[in-house]
C-alpha cells in the first residue's frame, strides 16, 4: 500500500475505534447499576469487548502511521479534543434507560457484524485477520440484543412504551451510520474496506425483522441526522472531559 492509502486506512480505523470506545465508555457507566446481577456481568462483557476492539483498531492505525503500537492508542483516546473525534453521534448520546441502552447497542452491533463480514476479506491482511476475531465477539453481541428486544418490546405495557420511546429517539441518528467513513473511498476502490452505504439494505432487513418480533414500529416522520462525523455533539465533550481528565493532568506519566 502507498502512503496515501495508509493514511486513509488509518483515518478509517480511527473512526471505527472512536465508535467502539465511546460506546464502551457509555456502556461501562452501567457497571454496578444494571437491573439484574447477571446482566451487570453480561453488559460488562460487551463493554470489555468494545474496548478491546477500539484498542485493536487504534493499534492497526499506529502501525500504518509508523507510530508506537503500545502508546499511540492512548494518545488517540486521551489527547484529542472533541473536534478531532470521528464517531457517529448515536454512540455519544447519554446512556438513557435500559431500553435505550439495549436498542442503541443492537443498532450498532448489527451494523458491526455486516461491516466485519466485509472486512474479513479485506485486501489488507492484518485488518482481515483482526476482523475475523472481532467478528465472533460481535456475533454474540447481536445474539444478546436479539434475545432482549422482544422481551422488553412484548413484556409489559411500560417496557413496550419505553422501547418505543427509545426507538423514536434513536431512529434519526441511524442515518448517519451509513454515510461513508473518513478515508473510505480509496479503500473501497482498493478492496480494503466495504462500502458503508452498501450495508444499509442488510442492516434494514435485520432491524425490520427484529423490530417486528419486538412489536415495535420505527417512526415515519423524522429528520435524519446526516451531518459528517467531524461535527460532534456536546455530549461527546462531556464524555471526553471525564475520560481524559486524569491522563491530561499528568501528560508525562505512564500508567
Amino acid at each position: 500500500m502507498d502512503s496515501k492509502l495508509n493514511a486513509s486506512l488509518a483515518e478509517y480505523l480511527t473512526a471505527l475505534g472512536d465508535d467502539e470506545l465511546v460506546l464502551a465508555q457509555r456502556d461501562a457507566e452501567w457497571c454496578g447499576h444494571a437491573p439484574i446481577l447477571e446482566e451487570d456481568i453480561a453488559f460488562a462483557n460487551l463493554a470489555v469487548d468494545e474496548l478491546g476492539h477500539a484498542r485493536t483498531w487504534y493499534e492497526l492505525a499506529a502501525e500504518l502511521l509508523s507510530e508506537d503500537r503500545g502508546r499511540f492508542p492512548d494518545h488517540l483516546a486521551y489527547f484529542r479534543d472533541a473536534a478531532e473525534w470521528r464517531c457517529v453521534q448515536l454512540v455519544t448520546l447519554p446512556r438513557g434507560d435500559w431500553a435505550f441502552t439495549l436498542l442503541r447497542r443492537y443498532f450498532f452491533d448489527v451494523l458491526e457484524v455486516l461491516r466485519l463480514e466485509g472486512l474479513k476479506s479485506s485486501g489488507y491482511a492484518p485488518l482481515a485477520e483482526a476482523a475475523a476475531k472481532i467478528y465472533n465477539e460481535e456475533l454474540y453481541h447481536v445474539r444478546h440484543g436479539k434475545a432482549w428486544l422482544p422481551r422488553l418490546g412484548r413484556g409489559t405495557e411500560e417496557s413496550h412504551a419505553r422501547m418505543q420511546a427509545a426507538l423514536t429517539q434513536l431512529w434519526p441518528y441511524t442515518a448517519q451510520m451509513f454515510l461513508p467513513l473518513p478515508g473510505e473511498a480509496p479503500l473501497v476502490a482498493a478492496g480494503i474496506a466495504p462500502e458503508t452505504a452498501g450495508l444499509e439494505a442488510g442492516w434494514w432487513a435485520a432491524i425490520e425483522a427484529a423490530l417486528a418480533a419486538a412489536d415495535l414500529r420505527a417512526p415515519e416522520k423524522f429528520i435524519p441526522v446526516t451531518r459528517p462525523r467531524s461535527q460532534q455533539t456536546e455530549h461527546l465533550m462531556g464524555l471526553l472531559s471525564e475520560m481524559q481528565m486524569l491522563a491530561r493532568a499528568n501528560p508525562q506519566a505512564r500508567w
Partner: peptide
Amino acid sequence: ITRAPSLKRKLILLAKVQDEAGHGQ
C-alpha cells in the same frame, strides 16, 4: 472506570469490577 487514565487500565478495571459482580453471583 470512566476516568481510568489508559485503555489498558480501563480494561483491567472494568473486568475486575465485573468479576466482583460474578463473585456476588
